[in-house]
Amino acid sequence: MSRTGFQLPLLPGRSPSEPPDTQDRTRALEAKGASEQVGARVRRLFGGSFHLRHVDAGSCNACESELKALANPYYDLHRLGIFIEPSPRHADGLIVTGPITLPMREPLLRTYEAMPEPRLVIAVGTCACTGGIFAGSELVAGPLERLLPVDVYIPGCPPSPLTLLHGLLLALGRVEEARR
């Protein structure tokens, strides 16, 4: 690693050989109850603008296609003040697709840890919500709620762009939740 001078984007002061700080993550999970307050804080703090970092954790590509469709002239995500952010350091929310494959578990958690608080986690698609057809597979570490505190679930295989809009606006408290 040092030989080639490569470094993965790590948190400061952590070497890659160190085991992941599971305690931190457990604490984050315990804080799930506080996510309602986080949501309220996010609305107050971020106001109209909401920046999202996307992580593909093993999706089939259909969810990505629908997320990309949000940028097309029909949906135009930007008009709602929602943006896709390249850097997790600048992101307010994390959108995750896919059932969390084993190799994507660590990159996903590192992306989450690189995000400043408060941060929202949004599960996009059936796979991220429950594992979908891959639920229970030993090759899958998900669903997402097992690893991170999820604030909004957007089901669908894949969720249509309108479903995604509804979910993202729900995260911002700008639409009502469906009753069933």
Partner: peptide, 14 residues
């Protein structure tokens, strides 16, 4: 040497 991924910018696959 540039390491790129698995989490890359934009909405892209891993």
């Amino acid at each position: 040497d540039f390491p790129l991924g698995p989490v890359r910018s934009g909405i892209v696959e891993s």
